[in-house]
Structures are given as structure tokens and as C-alpha cells.
Simulated assay, not measured.
Amino acid sequence: MEAQLPDLEAGKRFYGELFGWDFEEGYGGSVWARLGGEPVAALERKTDGRMPTVWTVYFATPDAQTLGRRIVAAGGQLVVAPYPVGDLGRAALAADPEGAVFGLWQARRHPGFGRRHEPGTFAWAELYTRDTTGANTFYGGLFHHALFAPGAEPDFGRADVTDVFPAEMPPHVLTHFRVTDLDDALATVRRLGGRVQAPPFETSYGRVAVVTDNQGASFALLRR
């Protein structure tokens, strides 16, 4: 999971105060966010101003090349073909048939999250789509299990995009971070220069608010 940001120092100040993260230099000029000494996210400098300022969720795979071919065969596309990230692993960017972008990560030395489902860490990824049936087929077929089934590991779900966003919002995957107190977290977002995109609402997986950071990257805060 990583954020593409124009200003890494501003990103470190924002997320460090909001989630209590510490940072260290990562691969290729990126920075790794840590909580309690464990990796929880990465911040990367956006080198092309035409690209969006976003958070991207990466799905783990033992073979990014093969999964990329299956994504294309299932009606999706490879936005960035698999490429090596030093000796850490291989990464790729893909899009589903509706255009929602997600990443692929084939781990070598860097396995991914060290902590999740705790305050200040990744808690959930929600796919906002206009075709929930098609999403079930596409993602369930790719990852060989019912991603959206009751009782599944609580990491990923999907909803109609118009449940939360205006009708013109394109389909997308929204990263959720867990917080202890949602109202306090929203106050911190505002104080740090971010804004509230969707005020708190109830979901089957907790109370959620959608926000943007002080550079425009959207993410969600989740109180379970």
C-alpha cells in the first residue's frame, strides 16, 4: 500500500501526526512508514504531475506476470507491467473492467504489511463500483476465493459507488485506516489541512468517513 504524493515531507508531517507513524528511507527515494517498528505503508514522490495523487492498495501474488495475463483475459488491463523493485519484490499496476486501479506485489525480501487491523494501520479496502455482480466475478475469479462472502477475512469489500459518492465519481478502490476515535481523527485531518469528503456513515464493517489529505489523496477512516 502506497501513496503517490507531490511533497513527501508534507506527507510525512501529515500522516506522522495523524497515525503516529515514523519514517525511514525506502527504495528509489520513497519512504517507508512504520508503526511500532513494523512497516505499515509507503509514501512515494509523484514524478509526473499528470498522474493522480492517490493511495493504491496492492494485492499479494506469487507470480505477478501470470496474474497480469489473467487480469487481461478477464477484461481488465495492465496499467504498468510487472517490474523489479530492487531485491524487495516485483510490482505492477492493473485496472479492473470498470477502470478501478489496484496494485500487484510479488514479494521477495519485503513481504508487505508488518501490522494491520490496528489503530493507525490498514483496516479495509472498499471497491466502489457500478457493477457489483461483475466485481464479484472478476475479483473472485482472480484470487480463487469469495472475496465478498460473509465470514471471509475482513480486508476487502465492494459497494455501489453511488452509495457514498456522486454519480459522476469513477469506480475506484478506497483504502481504509483504522482509528480509535473517528471524531478526533476527523478533527486532526482538518487541523492538518485535509478535508472531509464524506462525513461519518455506518457500514457493515464499521463507522466510516472519507477524507483527503493536505495534498488531495483520498482515503477513509474506520472505527470498528
Rank of each mutant, 00 (worst) to 15 (best):
T175H: 05
T175D: 10
T175C: 08
T175A: 12
T175F: 05
H176I: 14
H176L: 14
H176S: 02
H176A: 09
H176M: 04
H176W: 07
F177Y: 15
F177G: 14
R178F: 02
R178K: 13
R178W: 01
V179W: 01
V179E: 00
V179G: 01
V179H: 03
T180G: 11
T180H: 15
D181H: 08
D181S: 01
D181Y: 00
D181Q: 00
D181P: 00
L182Y: 07
L182E: 12
L182T: 12
D183M: 05
D183R: 13
D183L: 03
D184V: 08
D184F: 01
D184L: 05
D184G: 04
A185D: 11
A185C: 02
A185P: 09
L186A: 03
L186W: 08
L186E: 14
L186T: 11
A187W: 08
A187Y: 10
A187L: 08
A187H: 08
A187F: 04
V189P: 05
R190S: 09
R190G: 10
R191Y: 05
L192V: 12
L192M: 06
L192R: 06
G193Y: 00
G193W: 01
G193P: 09
G193I: 02
G194L: 03
G194W: 00
G194E: 00
R195P: 08
R195W: 04
R195K: 04
R195H: 15
V196A: 02
Q197C: 04
Q197S: 08
Q197M: 06
Q197V: 13
A198T: 15
A198V: 15
A198P: 04
P199V: 13
P199E: 13
P200L: 12
P200Q: 14
P200R: 13
P200Y: 09
P200A: 12
F201P: 11
F201K: 03
E202N: 06
E202Y: 06
E202L: 03
E202W: 06
E202K: 13
E202Q: 05
T203H: 00
T203P: 00
T203K: 00
S204G: 15
S204N: 06
